[in-house]
C-alpha cells in the first residue's frame, strides 16, 4: 500500500491533497503573461487617460481630432516667451509694477486695433514719458529685436492681446516681419512722441 493510499484511509476515505510544488515553467509562464499584459496595456490602454475612448489609441490622436482655434498655438508659444522674459517687469498678472513697467491689462497701447506701435516698441524698446490708462510713466524698456525672431514677437503680442481680460486681434508673423524690415535702420529706442505719427487704426 502506497503512502498516499494510507493517508486516504486515515481521513475516512476523504480525498487528501499531495505536496507537489508548482512547476517552475508555470511560474515562468506567469512572468511571460505579465510581460504580454504590460505590452498590451502600453499599446491599448490610451495611457490610462480618462479622455481616450475607442477608437482612439492615445491622447495625441484625441487632441488632433479636436477642432482647433487657428491662433491657439501662437498664443501658447507667446505664453512661454512672456513668462520667461516680459513677466519679470510687467508681472505675471500683467498689471505692471511701479518703478518697473506700466500695465498691459486694459492698456490702450496694447489693445490698439492695429498693432503697428507695439510691434515697434518690442523690436526697438521704449524710453521717456508715456501715458498709460491716464497715468504718466517714465521708464525704459530694452530692445528685443536681437533676442526674438518674428514668430516669437508675433506670439507674445498675440498672447498679451488675448490674455487676462484683454481681447484684440492676434498679431501675425508677417506684420512683424514687415515692420522689422521698414525700421531696420533704427538704433535708438522709441519715445511716445516718435510713435504718435504711426496709425493705430
Amino acid at each position: 500500500m502506497s503512502q498516499n493510499d494510507k493517508q486516504n484511509l486515515r481521513r475516512d476515505n476523504e480525498p487528501s491533497a499531495g505536496n507537489s510544488s508548482v512547476p517552475m515553467w508555470l511560474v515562468l509562464l506567469v512572468g511571460l503573461f505579465f510581460y504580454w499584459g504590460a505590452m498590451y496595456l502600453d499599446q491599448n490602454a490610451g495611457g490610462f487617460n480618462s479622455k481616450v475612448y475607442h477608437p482612439f489609441g492615445n491622447y495625441e490622436e484625441v487632441d488632433a481630432a479636436q477642432p482647433k482655434d487657428a491662433n491657439a498655438q501662437l498664443i501658447a508659444d507667446g505664453k512661454r516667451v512672456f513668462n520667461s522674459t516680459c513677466s519679470l517687469c510687467h508681472q505675471p498678472h500683467g498689471m505692471g509694477e511701479v518703478g518697473k513697467a506700466p500695465p498691459l491689462v486694459g492698456s490702450e497701447w496694447v489693445l490698439a486695433p492695429k498693432p503697428d506701435r507695439i510691434i515697434r516698441v518690442v523690436l526697438d524698446g521704449l524710453q521717456g514719458p508715456i501715458n498709460v490708462k491716464g497715468t504718466e510713466w517714465n521708464l525704459a524698456m530694452a530692445s528685443w529685436k536681437g533676442t526674438f525672431n518674428d514668430h516669437q514677437i508675433a506670439a507674445v503680442l498675440s498672447y498679451i492681446r488675448n490674455n487676462w481680460d484683454n481681447k484684440a486681434p492676434a498679431v501675425t508673423e508677417e506684420q512683424v516681419k514687415a515692420i522689422r524690415a521698414k525700421e531696420k535702420a533704427r538704433t535708438q529706442p522709441w519715445t511716445a512722441q516718435d510713435l504718435q505719427p504711426i496709425a493705430e487704426r
Partner: peptide, 14 residues
Amino acid sequence: PKLLGRQLFSRQLA
C-alpha cells in the same frame, strides 16, 4: 479524486 480513489496531485497547485 474522491470517486477515483486517488489523492489530488498537488495542494500548492490548487
